[in-house]
């Protein structure tokens, strides 16, 4: 992932942005809002991923086509008939509706892709650590144990190779499975015994004796408050301006867009604008040297 200004903001700012972006995305089915969502989500996704992002976006095209194309088979309402499939009407309105739903799905996937890169597990724990202390501790331990298990598993397999019990390509499938089971068994035993030792160490250091405090690397800055304020105003604008309605079947009707669309567009472009601002500042400071 590249350097990104929005990712450096407080987790609360990140979380509220994605809550708004994804929330609006799944509820509003107006095609112009959808297009704004596609631009916002796609643009930010590409900024975060760089050139690799195109591959993912290209992979979403068939998903779009399948969802859009299948919808009229199940939703037969609509007036303009394109053709009939198995005696059932395949209408233009239903196809449009399918495209709207498919577009919503694709945009949502892109937003979640951005979310996964921006709101990492440490940020999640920072946000919800005090609300759900036991569960967030559990989450941290689980995430830490995965690489730990992989490393230990390799050590066990290597140790078995040293005493001539390793599995190579020459072994039969049955021997391979048996060897794998042995490694897994040893790994599980080690992990479970280790858990007791970890737990006893935690108890010795006073786990559960008082309210837990947590280390926080993120601080709310003036910029965070300003961003949250701006997001609140823009989201209220989208809700109050109206003009987000659209129905597809049985009759196509799309509300004429109001200035709410502009508010929505600005809302979605917040991370991209921050990225650009940082890039311009960096450029100016470089040329100043």
């Amino acid at each position: 992932m590249r350097y990104d200004a929005f990712s450096k903001c407080h987790p609360l700012t990140n979380f509220l942005f994605f809550l708004g972006a994804i929330g609006f995305c799944v509820v509003i089915q107006h095609p112009m809002y959808l297009a704004a969502g596609a631009v916002g989500a796609g643009g930010y996704y590409l900024l975060l991923k760089g050139r690799d992002g195109w591959k993912r976006i290209a992979g979403l095209v068939p998903v779009f086509v399948v969802i859009a194309g299948l919808n009229p088979l199940l939703n037969t309402y609509g007036e303009r008939l394109l053709f009939t499939v198995f005696g059932r009407p395949y209408t233009l309105e239903a196809l449009y509706y399918g495209m709207a739903v498919a577009g919503m799905f694709v945009v949502m996937i892109l937003w979640f892709g951005c979310y996964s890169m921006v709101l990492t597990s440490d940020k999640f724990v920072c946000l919800f650590g005090s609300l759900i202390p036991a569960l967030s501790l559990l989450l941290v331990m689980v995430l830490r144990m995965i690489p730990n298990l992989a490393r230990k598993g390799k050590q066990i397999a290597d140790a078995r190779t040293c005493i001539g019990k390793g599995v190579t390509g020459a072994n039969s499938a049955k021997e391979k499975i048996a060897g794998g089971m042995q490694v897994l068994s040893a790994l599980t035993d080690w992990a479970l015994e280790g858990s007791i030792i970890t737990a006893d160490a935690m108890r010795c250091r006073g786990y559960g004796t008082a309210k837990r405090t947590s280390f926080r690397i993120y601080r709310m800055t003036t910029r965070d408050w300003a961003l949250i304020g701006a997001m609140g105003v823009l989201a209220a604008g989208v809700l109050l301006a109206g003009g987000t309605g659209a129905t597809f079947t049985p009759e196509l009707w799309i509300a004429s867009p109001t200035w709410g669309l502009a508010a929505y567009g600005v809302f979605l472009l917040i991370p991209t604008l921050l990225y650009l601002q940082e890039a311009v500042q960096w450029h100016i400071s470089i040329s100043g040297i």
Binding site: P133, V142, N148, A191, T198, A199
Partner: peptide
């Protein structure tokens, strides 16, 4: 229910190991 029970350290870590095995 899990939070308010204030799970003991041993229970919590054993659960974490099982959870990690499932995720792995």
């Amino acid at each position: 229910a899990f939070e308010t029970r204030r799970p003991q350290a041993r229970e919590l870590v054993t659960l974490a190991v099982m959870c990690a095995l499932a995720v792995a």
